[in-house]
Design a protein around this nucleic acid. Structure first.
Lengths: 230, 230
DNA sequence: ATTACTAAGTTACGAGTAA
DNA sequence: TTTACTCGTAACTTAGTAA
């Protein structure tokens, strides 16, 4: 099916032409696809000829209804898009190791977080975070993580202050299990923070500026093969 | 964005170019969109020029990666399709009243169904079903109902035989609340069966061949305004 | 093997306009 | 008002190639 016909069919569907016979003039449809009335008219003729729509022509208006064949075509397209935006389970990030603002140690040592990490991630994190600065072109991969629930770590309060909720994703670096950690509130930057059961900078001999690859999964379990226990 | 460029971008996304840099030749992509190598090459140039993709050109292969802008365009399209296929809550069917094979009375009188109808639909159905023959062009609307859970009526067994599960949808005919009923197993025909608390053929003065309109909802509650109780 | 240019062929577009 | 025809031209496609 020609892409421009599919586009027109999509517009009709958005106007409700799958569920109901809709009244739509060629002029009105032309505006929606940024084309002339003549072009819209031609598209409708072509869609009709190929059995994607039915039309009831009146003297001043036409009633349009998408056929089962047309609906099937749209649904197929829908499935493609759904595949694109909901299937990926492993996401690769390349980036370089950077130093954070040293706040990681304070946060990751809070008992309120630690008990949840142990229970939900299966390990007590080494204090501090490993920060990975990802390439800007890879930032769009974060979309997949934004829309995912992840492993939820609840907010809690201490005598002094309150700590916000975060969400985690299991991940893998050089065959070591780690967890990507995001605040539930706040924006996503191009610096990803990870926690791990060990001090990875020593274990993996990492220093600032080293280029590494991390595989993040949206699955709740993940093992990269190597064990993290001694 | 031109529809044919979006199509190419979609193909790249399906090959994983949102998450990863992918290796794809113009020849290979040309096959996927049923066009020549030259056309595919031109599309890639255009996508690149407009900032939808990044390319790393090698001597024998190119690495392609979809940018955030490209990913955004695809996501917008995805949302349109999702809107089309998951938003409708009220579905209108036009059709004509027909006589069933009189089996409706037997089934709708089964105690195993009746108790569930009363609990889940809020009424005890008048024995028998009202059958509506819908136009073939309206059959594609059934897709929305197929994918919906509806109000589930469980299977059960009597001493003699077993009765399969069915699902119901609240519906409305001439301001009277009724329910559309589907077997959970089995195919969907162009004859819809409805149950109602009253004998609708009398109430609404319906006879075979009468043209009526029914509004079905996928919501669990529905009231059409008029009361069904005296 | 690639990508992508040029040139020629083909299709699509829209102004004008009839019905 | 509509829809949709004709037809000149603009846009897109592809065969043939170069790099």
């Amino acid at each position: 099916m020609k892409p421009y016909l599919l586009q027109m069919l999509k517009e009709l569907a958005l106007l409700g032409a799958i569920e109901n016979r809709i009244e739509a003039s060629s002029m009105q449809l032309a505006e929606r696809i940024n084309a002339s009335q003549q072009t819209a008219s031609r598209y409708l003729l072509e869609l009709d000829k190929n059995g994607f729509i039915n039309r009831e022509m009146g003297i001043k208006k036409q009633l349009i209804h998408i056929t089962e064949k047309g609906s099937d075509s749209l649904h197929e397209e829908y499935l493609s898009y759904r595949h694109i935006f909901s299937l990926p389970r492993f996401i690769h990030f390349k980036g370089k190791i950077v130093s954070g603002m040293k706040e990681g140690t304070y946060y990751t040592s809070q008992q309120g977080y630690v008990t949840q990490f142990k229970k939900k991630l299966g390990f007590i994190p080494y204090p501090g975070t490993l920060n990975l600065e990802i390439d800007l072109v890879e930032k769009n991969k974060l979309r997949f993580l934004k829309q995912e629930e992840g492993i939820q770590i609840s907010a809690f309060e201490t005598e002094n202050r309150s700590f916000g909720g975060v969400k985690c994703f299991n991940a893998c670096i050089n065959k070591h299990n780690i967890s990507l950690i995001f605040p539930l509130r706040g924006h996503y930057s191009n610096i990803l923070e990870f926690i791990a059961p060990n001090f990875l900078r020593d274990r993996l001999d990492l220093t600032d500026g080293d280029l590494v690859e991390v595989v993040v999964t949206i699955e709740k379990q993940m093992s990269c093969g190597a064990s993290d226990e001694k």
